[in-house]
Write a protein that binds this DNA or RNA. Structure first.
Length: 150
DNA sequence: GCCAACGTTGGC
DNA sequence: GCCAACGTTGGC
């Protein structure tokens, strides 16, 4: 089974690539969108993901992380005091999931969103066509092309 | 801070 | 099952 590629968004004010570098690894909690959740569940150990900084100036791809633990229930959904609390998620049949990712690489300079938009090879990228999806697949050709920019 | 895009909720 | 209202994301 070939390794798959992904893109995961985080607001750097909340959690940045530098935070991940410092922590070495982290759990990716708080995803509350079904499409994004389905992508999380499809991730396999060893898959690589671009770490995207949203709501940044400029927004862009800051580095790479690696999946080190496959999807398991997002416990923050069961915690009333958590901002990710969802009373509809039943511990016996969890609605939301998270994965663990490890720091892989920080780009010398982030690849800014405007640069991605300039490339015709990337015009079908999910990022450029569904700007709200926080966990999304990346095609191998797109992955390679972006690595050239980084 | 504004607002377009779009996912979710809930009345009917 | 439709769709209006509403909330959130995220670029600018």
């Amino acid at each position: 089974m070939a390794r798959q590629f992904w893109l995961m968004k985080s607001e750097p004010d909340v959690y940045s690539i530098d935070d991940l570098a410092r922590d070495t690894s982290t759990f990716w909690d708080g995803v509350r969108n079904y499409q994004a959740r389905n992508h999380l569940k499809a991730m396999k150990k060893g898959d690589l993901a671009f770490f995207y900084h949203s709501n940044a100036t400029p927004p862009g791809i800051a580095g790479i992380c690696r999946v080190v633990r496959e999807a398991y229930p997002d416990s923050t959904a069961f915690e009333p005091e958590s901002k990710y609390y969802d009373p509809r998620s039943d511990p016996d049949q969890p609605r939301w999931f998270m994965v663990d990712v490890a720091f892989e690489e920080k780009f010398d300079a982030p690849v800014p969103l405007p640069s991605l938009k300039e490339l015709p090879e990337l015009e079908d990228m999910v990022l450029l066509n569904n700007s709200r999806l926080s966990v999304q697949p990346v095609k191998p050709s797109e992955w390679e092309r972006i690595l050239q920019l980084a």
